[in-house]
Design a protein around this nucleic acid. Structure first.
Length: 553
RNA sequence: UGGGAUAUAGCCAAGCGGUAAGGCACCAGAUUUUGAUUCUGGCAUUCACUGGUUCGAUCCCAGUUAUCCCAGCCA
């Protein structure tokens, strides 16, 4: 495993050395309302790996303080994803475990005159809050007596008020330049059953109030979150101090990680699923962990990607090349490498018997013979990749087949092209070659050097399978076509589902699948273990356009 | 136009007062039964800009510019 090294680690080392903390405790606090994606993986990996560096502990804590958005389905999915990444939380807990303790701390703040029950409606409160440039003004309910607040808050809990009728607010400073400090709401009334506490509660703490207390209750030392919470840190510290928390956790922020041409926002991922642009959260086109898993990613590849990509306070966008690299690196010695032909060109071996097919032993991975061998068919009729043939050798650097040129068919024989057959439109139909029996793989033939090596499949034994281009696993060999589409960023604010993934990806980036199947054949055989000789049909289906508006609300 | 954060190569990212690590991408060459892999070499006289402090500044200070975040009873 790579050595983790980033600014948070430096902070931890210093805190330990200077005695501010005795040991490291971190937590990964997802809200159970979405599937985890590669961005979460960064948080998970850092939370766990940083604690691990110092023999510390990491909790998984579900931040379930809003019953209208959350559910059990996500809890289980998140637990599974973390397990898949290879981590075991020290404890699995829930924000709702602390509802009573949190409630008591709210009472403490009321008693100290630092919290009050407000009757302002949401719209009124918004007006009273002021703007970025103008200070807010105090709520008319701000000066209720402690007794009245205590009574009202108890009645809020007892369900005497409707949703939105009252809130509990912290009494800080309506003129604060940091808007988060302008008497933030601590509790709101929600008469909705909670997935764990049922109808026990009808008031729920807000993130800003609940989170620091939860961290403190659990003994978290370093509460790591993304940079947009930077503005909340003063409030975090305020609640810790004013609630007289025994254990004092500290919040640190890091920048968010984006990946080029990848949607990472929960909201849009949900839209893609809900509106059936993809087949589900585990669609291989999704950046979710379950999606990446189906696409062929391994936890090791994801971890290496995250750790090598590093961490800073800058929001950054990493090229998808980076992610691909770590998958290739991870799969180099692990993957079996059978051949596949995407765009077939028929080859007839004129000097080979027409009713004969021979099977040649070939290693599954030339760089790792421990993976064993497979039988590769060779016969009179073959397919090669169209792009591996040109009639006339264009230059010295051309290392593939051309007329009157001899190449090696990987694991098989040297072949030489003698004739090119055209149809009435002057398109190449097939090419005629001869093979040299002396050059069979393994015989040690070295009298001539071929003009390169290309891969092939034997036509009569090959399976006509359709691949999901996004997925190294062969999904359905029997299915005739599969819709292929991809998300492309059209401009800063919108993305579209485009058809024709293959072409665009081929043009703009080194296509992972092209690389894996065509030239290298890195993929993990899973469902189709009986044959590794496959014809790749490329089928694109037009899909409607999907545009998202990045403007809030 | 209020407050906060950030600025090091095409993309990430180390460096924290002593003269710019590393990875991706890219380029050139060698090896090669995958134009892959592997190997070798190249890739910031300069750290957003302008001043200042200092023997010495990416690092400290001041100003400027650019980008991001904040006006949910979301997290």
């Amino acid at each position: 495993m790579e050595e983790i090294n980033n600014f948070i680690k430096t902070i931890m080392e210093k805190d330990l050395k200077e005695g501010r903390v005795k040991s490291i405790v971190t937590r990964f606090p997802p809200e159970p309302n979405a599937y985890l994606h590669i961005g979460h993986a960064r948080a998970i990996i850092n939370d766990f790996e940083l604690a691990k560096c110092f023999n510390g502990k990491t909790n998984l804590r579900f931040d379930d303080t809003n019953p209208v958005k959350e559910g059990e389905e996500y809890v289980n999915a998140i637990i599974e994803d973390i397990k898949w990444l290879g981590y075991t939380p020290d404890k699995i807990c829930y924000g709702s475990d602390y509802f009573e303790k949190t409630y008591q701390k709210a009472i403490l703040l009321i008693k100290k005159g630092l919290a009050y029950v407000d009757d302002l409606s949401a719209e009124e409160m918004s007006k009273y809050r002021g703007t970025l440039t103008e200070p807010g003004i105090n709520s008319p309910y701000r000066d209720r007596t402690i007794e009245e607040n205590l009574d009202l808050f108890a009645r809020m809990r007892n369900g005497e008020f409707k949703d939105g009728e009252k809130t509990l607010r912290a009494k800080i400073d309506m003129a604060a330049t940091n808007i988060n400090m302008r008497d933030p709401v601590m509790y709101r009334i929600i008469h909705t059953a909670h997935h764990r506490t049922g109808t026990t509660w009808c008031i729920y703490p807000m993130y800003d109030f609940a989170h620091p207390l939860q961290d403190s209750f659990e003994g978290v030392t370093h509460s790591l979150c993304s940079i947009e919470f930077d503005n909340h840190r003063p409030l975090y510290d305020w609640f810790i101090e004013k609630c007289e928390m025994e254990h004092v956790p500290h919040q640190y922020e890091w920048g968010r990680l984006n990946i080029t041409n990848t949607i990472m926002s929960k909201r849009y991922l949900r839209q893609l699923v809900d509106e059936h642009y993809v087949t589900g959260y585990d669609d291989p086109r999704m950046p979710t962990l379950v999606g990446l898993k189906r696409k062929g990613f391994t936890p090791e590849a994801i971890k290496a990607f995250i750790l090598y990509t590093g961490l800073s306070r800058i929001n950054s966008t990493t090229s998808a090349d980076n992610l691909d690299f770590f998958l290739r690196e991870d799969q180099k010695l692990k993957a079996t490498r059978p051949s596949a032909i995407i765009d077939p060109l028929k080859v007839v071996i004129t000097n080979y018997p027409s009713n004969q097919v021979e099977w040649i032993d070939a290693p599954l991975n030339m760089e790792n013979e421990e993976l064993g061998t497979r039988k590769v068919a060779f016969g009179k009729y073959l397919y090669i990749e169209k792009e591996d043939f040109v009639v006339e050798k264009p230059n010295k650097k051309w290392k593939r087949l051309a007329k009157d040129v001899e190449v090696r068919l990987m694991h098989a024989y040297f072949i030489k092209c003698n004739d090119v057959i055209y149809d009435e439109n002057n398109e190449i139909v097939e090419i005629h070659c001869t093979y040299d029996p002396k050059t069979k793989c393994g015989l040690g033939f070295d009298e001539r050097k071929p003009n390169g090596t290309i891969h092939f499949v034997e036509a009569t034994t090959a399976l006509n399978a359709t691949f999901n281009l996004f997925n190294p696993l062969i999904e359905d060999a029997t299915e005739e076509t599969k819709e292929l589409s991809f998300l492309e960023r059209v401009n800063k604010n919108s993305w579209e589902v485009k058809h024709g993934f293959v072409e665009s990806y081929l043009k703009d980036t080194k296509p992972l699948m092209h690389y894996q199947f065509v030239r290298n054949g890195y993929y993990t055989t899973d469902k189709l273990s009986t044959s590794d000789n496959l014809i790749f049909n490329r089928t694109c289906t037009l899909k409607s356009s999907f545009t998202v508006d990045n403007n809030k609300n």
